[in-house]
Design a protein around this nucleic acid. Structure first.
Lengths: 351, 351
DNA sequence: CGTGGCTGTCGAAGCGCTTCGACAGCTCGT
DNA sequence: ACGAGCTGTCGAAGCGCTTCGACAGCCACG
């Protein structure tokens, strides 16, 4: 008997309702809201009062249609869970928060939709611009981004960045700084426990760059550096460390860039008879909270996920405003010294 | 000399362009796309060919305006980083993936916008419905959700769920199952290492429910259960465990529900002279990957983040279709036995 | 052979908003 | 006292799409 779905609520008020209620033209209401033309104090107040009273909110679709701006940006995140999850999350939050400050919303897109996902959201004008995270050195989305009608900002730097806008931590320098720190303490043999093999194979920039930085710094400082991938999970980490010390018993400095491995590494070393930092020093490349919650607290180069997110959004907004922006923005790493690094002890060194 | 921004690209094609190119009416193109009216095979093919040829994509805003459906849902996620980050991520990914299967996109909203954020996205018709995660027992957003014109689904169950749609793991039973498992193995004294204090204070449902389940099961099985909050970080965990064993030296079963604490707990116990599982059995409530990567592999009640996400989206879609859905959907926990639990050894028990 | 019911297509009326050009009143400078 | 130049407001024309009612042509039935 009752209709399938009554409309008990007298539908959301539209700008027309507001105009009628305030006794002005629709366009006047629009100008009050956008501020694009001068409106007298009294009229503005009358309109604002009506807006509040009626509980008016402009319809996003209509606005997007008429103004050709959706006020939404897309954020493309890697779905591959496990790895660097906290960083991704932290980053995402920074993006949303910053976007809101610019009066934009954020549409979440997963990497596994691939280039098609990008094309879809861009072509349908669902979003005004795109933020792509976890860009690989030779990423299939890069050419697409170049020809896309909408601005984009990449997190991570592909092999060829011409015509793009990229933001990232300078991982090369980060790796470099870790080695420099250890070398400065007197360590002569260090090892990089890097990302999982799959990450290197994928051609992920930050993994390769860190390694390159480590190798370069090792050369400059005259220390031996062995670099090896490191899978996730306590068992895998233990295996990796065991192997490492079997082949290189005199490694006294460890650089860990896989945040998922940080905990297990710290847990495993004592079990292997190596104390931190007396027998082996550990430097991590990971978010600060991680480093501070570890025991001992870790000397680390923090990954400034938040700052990267903020920067990325800001750059995108500047592009919306047709400003010219640099192709590559690399944030400088700062190494924070905590309790996990020390000069090698003679005993440790003599092992 | 050049105009501020030339329009070298001949603007995206519109439905009108497609219609003209295919020699049909605009409405015909629309019907081909929506399938809401019968279109002859030959016309459809002609239209589809034109669409492909011109690279046409319907304008999301226009579509939303005319059809009153944005095909976007909002996902409200807690910003509080640290805690259960992987679960949140896993969940978010499941939501996006499932939403895409229903041809919807996902707008990311942070909890810290509070009720205002919800109101905004709902009132502007930016989204058709809302998914709210991390709902507290007495959540300020709940009343708003009740009166909102758009459907919503909550992850987590507030104190009063009438008129709402909620999905969650049955944490009460999860806690219950952990105790039952330990009791079955012969443990007589168990402890719950719960969420951080702040989480209980916030009135977060799952924390309270798990504890209640633990307490109830303890009563039924005649075992002693002590429950205590547990902060994050290796140091805090060590402290908590030390205190625990100081006051309750004969606890032989541990239930850990704070996933961030799982690693540290496993690392700390041996250091405290308790082997797992010989001296103390450990059951976790955490995502499966975590449990499997730990060493030893953990007996655990997995948090089915993915299934919850999928369910939540499905329920929301059903509500879009005006279907009736249950107010509360509780997923049943399944306890997976691995290597971290065993019967207490006489020696261990006699401690 | 007329009539009723399909099927496939069209045209037009919006959806709610932005923006452009027009223009009524004013205020000034002369 | 008069036009120039402001200021503040209005009306109307879209933006690109969906959807409703109309209707031409066709088949089949009695």
């Amino acid at each position: 008997m009752t209709p399938p779905r009554g409309r008990p609520s007298p539908d959301q008020p539209t700008i027309t309702d507001v105009a009628r209620h305030a006794g002005v033209a629709v366009s006047t209401v629009s100008y009050v809201l956008s501020g694009k033309r001068a409106i007298s104090e009294v009229t503005r107040n009358r309109v604002l009062a009506s807006i509040r009273l009626l509980g008016y909110h402009p319809h996003a679709g209509a606005r997007a249609l008429a103004s050709r701006r959706a006020n939404v940006i897309a954020l493309v995140l890697p779905l591959r869970a496990g790895m660097q999850v906290p960083v991704v999350m932290q980053f995402a939050m920074a993006v949303v928060t910053t976007a809101r400050r610019f009066d934009h919303d954020v549409l979440l897109v997963t990497s596994d939709e691939g280039p098609a996902g990008l094309r879809r959201v861009a072509a349908t004008a669902l979003v005004d611009g795109v933020l792509v995270m976890d860009v690989e050195l030779d990423d299939p989305r890069v050419p697409l981004l170049r020809e896309l009608a909408r601005p984009s900002v990449l997190i991570g730097v592909p092999a060829d960045a011409t015509g793009l806008t990229c933001v990232d931590l300078d991982f090369h320098r980060a790796g470099w700084a870790c080695v420099a720190h250890l070398a400065g303490l007197g360590h002569r043999r260090v090892a990089l426990l890097g990302a999982p093999t799959a990450v290197y194979d994928r051609g992920t920039g930050f993994a390769h760059r860190t390694r390159a930085g480590v190798v370069e710094a090792a050369g400059e400082h005259g220390v031996d550096a062995v670099t090896l991938p490191c899978e996730e999970g306590a068992v895998a980490v233990r295996q990796t460390l065991t192997d490492l010390f079997a082949h290189h018993p005199d490694v006294s400095g460890l650089i860990v860039q896989n945040e998922a491995a940080v905990g297990p590494v710290l847990a495993t070393l004592p079990a292997l008879g190596r104390r931190v930092p007396q027998d082996v020093s550990v430097v991590a490349v990971c978010p600060d909270p991680f480093a501070e919650q570890a025991s001992p607290m870790l000397t680390a180069v923090p990954v400034p996920a938040e700052e990267i997110g903020t920067q990325a959004v800001s750059l995108l907004m500047r592009k919306f405003g047709d400003e010219a922006v640099p192709e590559v923005t690399l944030l400088q790493p700062r190494l924070t010294v905590r309790d996990s690094t020390a000069s090698p002890t003679p005993a440790g060194a003599g092992r």
